[in-house]
Nucleic acid binder design. Sequence first.
RNA 1: GCCGCCGUGGCGGAAUAGGCAGACGCAUGGGACUUAAAAUCCCACGAUAGCGAUAUCGUACCGGUUCAAGUCCGGUCGGCGGCACCA
Length: 801
Amino acid sequence: MSRYDFSAVEKKWQKYWDEHKSFEAVNDYSKPKFYALVEFPYPSGHGMHVGHIKAYSGLEVVSRKRRMQGYNVLFPIGFDAYGLPTENTAIKENIHPRIVTDRNIEKFTNQLKTVGFSFDWSRVVDTTEEDYYKWTQWIFLKMFENGLVFRDKTSVNYCPSCKVVLSNEDSQGGKCDICHSDIVQKTKEVWYLRITEYADKLLQGLEEVDYLPNVKLQQQNWIGKSTGAFVEFAVKENGEKLRIYTTRPDTLYGVTFMVMAPEHPMIEKYRDGIANIAELDAYKAECAKKSEFERTQLVKDKTGVRIDGLTAVNPITGKEIPIYISDYVMMGYGTGAIMAVPAHDQRDYEFAKKFGIDIIEVIKGGDISVEAYTGDGEMVNSGELDGISNKKEAIEKMLGLLAAKGCGEKGVQYKMKDWAFNRQRYWGEPIPIVHCPHCGMVAVPYEELPLRLPKVENFEPGTDGESPLAKIDEYVNCKCPKCGCDAKRETDTMPQWAGSSWYFLRYCDPNNDSEFASQEALKYWMPVDWYNGGMEHVTRHMIYSRFWHKFLYDLGLVPTSEPYAKRTAQGLILGPDGEKMSKSRGNVIDPNDVVDEYGADVLRLYVLFMGDYEKAAPWSESSIKGCKRFLDRVWGLRDMLVDGDEYSDELRSQFHKTIKKVTEDIEAMKFNTAIAAMMTLINDIYSVGRINKAELGAFCTMLNPFAPHITEEMYSETFGSILSEQSWITYDEALCKDETIEIVVQVNGKLKAKLNIAVDADKDSVIAMALDDEKVRESVEGKNIVKQIYVPNKLVNIVAK
RNA sequence: GCCGCCGUGGCGGAAUAGGCAGACGCAUGGGACUUAAAAUCCCACGAUAGCGAUAUCGUACCGGUUCAAGUCCGGUCGGCGGCACCA
């Protein structure tokens, strides 16, 4: 048997597919379409990771199969190329980020091609190219026009090492997402996108899409909707209203104090009337020093200071209650102030214990001398609410009382915050806004887009956190597009997430220079039928892009309210040591090495065979040999080839069964069991000792999506035609069944015998056969048969006592 | 703390909808071929007892439902992920 030269064969077919544009989607809008999307890579200098291979191999298999099934498949790829690592390389090596980006994209392109992915290479998108980011800016301006862009001075997450302001999403755990330094708090005026305006739509949209359940759940948690009430407490000294948000209006009789966030504006407003203002200022200063992370992460003693000079009045009871400031209340959620009910909230309970404040039980069921009771029960000490259930009844009644007094109403809150939309770095989309001393913020006119990144010598950010663009006078100084007077250009750039928020739209019509994509193309291709990616992008990229898409939908610019009909996620590939791959651990597997040693087909097969696609699995150097052996055995089929246009009797039902299994498993992303079924089939073929042409053709076809190179080679050698242009093979449900079937005979649930019976044999004859079996007879001897259970084609269970 | 997911051989993992636990692959042991090695092929491979046919136990642990539980229900322990002083 001639040895399989994977290297030559793989190159040969990659060249063929490239030259024949084999996998380009066609603009024939009458064909059924299938739009499969994978997360486009950030082209880092390290090249591809085996994780990319696994992430792309899933929909690669589905796409190749769907093409053979007659779909017009759009399976595009591109590069999400703006970002800090590229800029940092540029600074370090003193070359322009454009050059670094082009270099990295070339490297990624070559790597993707050596794996044989069937991407549509005619639609490649690069977010840093002018004809792409022109439209990113265009959409931003549409948002600006529609009031979704604003500037606000707030405490921001700032990375002193990257010299950049980060969103909450990019600074989770108090560490910079890029360089892992500690984040500090800085007050800065920054850009925001009003994503909270879409909170409810983003939540409701989840009901109409087919996402993995935990993907939906994570997005729901991220949006974090809660329902409750806004209540106004009068402040005795100045007649002001202190507005709070609570999810527990039923507990209003149990309020014994109020807490404001240290930054609450009422303190500044009435500082003259506060006797202990110096003490409050000291506490505020102490809080400001702590990062958001320290403030929230540490499980620590409650601290706070009572405001001497402001007293709240409970709108229902008329009782006067003290007001405190404490850092356990955040300015960024609700109204920045709470009503505290120590009997029924653990945080309030701890605070009250420490400060010696009354704890009044208003719901029966717990022991408030030990801890707060947060469960449900009957109302007590609550006037007109006494005796009813705290749940719906008391809440409804209280809302009625508040409404009657005009000091409260139902309310909804979201945990999701507005999207901090800026970077003070060079390598990003320039924000197309001009600051005019007369007109304020003015949009750059649409016809002047793209607003190009200027050429710069030095990409280093300023030490003050200013963008490098701020140092370029000819960029900064401009005329106001509205009034023509001297004005200054905005120098912040957009965050990394901007370009990926609409790339799936551009793939539909990537070369359009008059629109971001034509309506015709969008109507045909959208929504994305199947989007696969990593769990790490579920709450950031996915929510951001759903937001942009819903915005465009509201403007009538895209045809669907949701961008992605279906979302799945692949599990991580861990290092051979079972730990997450990282350079510092030295357990990184380079896909190039695997391709060189075993070939692309083996790599593709292995990443799908190694375990459940959606779960993490460790890389194993020895397991990959199993895939190599399998393909060697596939190649060996050439030596046992005989004539025949139909499946042989020995293998017919095996083939039908395997085709059915593979066809179904691919759609269910159960690639590991699909491969296992083909391994079983090849074991069967080897024990028969021969394979005919019809069988070889069918085998190559079902293996083709997984291992396209070897199967193209074998197919063209045998049939003289191109496998990827053939139709997917079908199976006959009737032929998947054998004529006789083995069933299990149990006595009292224990396996005693196996019988070969005709398929769908009737109960009585099967049970008679079972009872006739020698071992079964032994087991039931001297006992009464109380029950006989027959599960057709599966088992017989005889219950005897 | 809250929410969600998961615990199956030496290992990765299979097991429609409760119906033969361990498919498929790896590793290991034995054998064949070979001067030898690699490669390949054949056999064995959950545990315990037994020469053996076989028996008993076995899907983290305890209990329940059922003719029948890896699968369903209640509880415990362990691991992973998300959110986190969210009022």
